[in-house]
Design a protein around this nucleic acid. Structure first.
Lengths: 197, 197
DNA sequence: CGTGTATTGTACTGCTCGGTTCCAAACCAT
DNA sequence: ATGGTTTGGAACCGAGCAGTACAATACACG
């Protein structure tokens, strides 16, 4: 017996994700968000409490969506060799940059910025990073060349790949020459071929 | 026939570097800078024009200081094997993180943030990044294992190392577990051992 | 067809920001 | 001493920020 909400909550979060992704948490102003989400101050505060809470919801959404996609790619059983899954992850990253996507990674940008001083945000970022790392480890276990490695080496390799992933997405955001991204990815593929020793 | 300046310009820039390094460009407020530099608004604007100009001076100073140190390490002829120079660079990075330095890299933070939308700042950041990459390439040329590689592969390897460097410094800033940094660096050392194929 | 209620839109509140202006104090040359 | 300059400090500016209060609105239900 009340006026119904005129917008869809999930849709609003998706739109907010786009704004935060492009501008970052601190640099996304409330007017930016309101315009991008297509609603007004009153509605936003009623529905999402405040800016930080909205960002946490966005991070959770991003974890489901983007991190989930990366994990799905890394654990995709229809690609039998885990190494190929990892290469395809970096290839997708390159394709996105080549297509003009300079947004980088929402998590990586947050990780590099000052927003990490908030413990709630830091925890959400860490959760997403762990998700990617776990996907990488799963892919390595499915790679004939790497499955036999000691577990410690597998973890170390997964971490170097995660670091590479983060570095590349930072570079993508900073509009570095595309060649750098391309060459790094080529080296990653080569690293995965020879690391079996 | 005029009153002399009461502060040392270079010293002021060094102090400003510390402030920007800790807080980032956008998040370093003028009061932050004034307090850190020990001078007042009037003096700052007389001496440095405005905040952005000060930041450009700081970036130039950082390029001389920090990037110069990295390059010196990578081109240090008293370490004959270039591979060892590269490993020592990453070891120094690890040591800094282990010692509690969570400032990461001034250039890397700027590269990941919104300040890149300013072309002057972006150019200065790119210049610093190129300096590190050139140092890495020089070290690879001095590495018996890698000197014989095709030039394209050397460049690609230098880029993957640069990406790794950036990723690690972002991770350092985001207070990731130290073990991740450690394992990534171990993998880097192993990568440099086997990449000779 | 009203009435109640949740949502909406907007005006407003403090606050902080980067940057400017103004003036008295400090200094040097003469 | 003294006059000319430049510093250093604080008041001030307009703009933009996140967040709030409140009135107008539109629906569901009796």
């Amino acid at each position: 017996m009340a006026r119904p909400r005129e917008f869809d909550t999930d849709d609003a979060i998706r739109k907010a994700t786009a704004v935060f992704w492009e501008k970052g948490y601190l640099d996304a102003s409330l007017p930016d968000l309101l315009e991008g989400m297509g609603l007004t101050r009153g509605s936003l505060y009623k529905a999402f409490k405040d800016k930080k809470n909205l960002f946490l919801l966005v991070l959770a959404h991003y974890d489901d969506e983007a991190v989930g996609a990366a994990r799905a790619r890394l654990t995709n059983a229809s690609v039998p060799d885990g190494r190929d899954r990892i290469v395809s992850l970096f290839a997708a990253l390159y394709a996105a940059v080549a297509a003009g996507d300079t947004r980088g990674c929402l998590l990586c940008s947050a990780a590099a910025g000052f927003e990490m001083s908030d413990p709630d945000i830091a925890a959400a970022v860490e959760k997403g990073m762990s998700g990617i790392r776990e996907g990488l480890e799963a892919a390595l276990r499915a790679s004939p060349v790497h499955a036999g490695l000691p577990e410690a080496e597998q973890r170390a390799l997964a971490n170097v790949l995660l670091t590479q992933y983060i570095g590349l997405r930072v570079l993508a955001r900073s509009r570095m020459p595309l060649g750098i991204v391309e060459q790094s990815i080529e080296s990653i593929a080569r690293l995965l071929d020879v690391e079996s020793t």
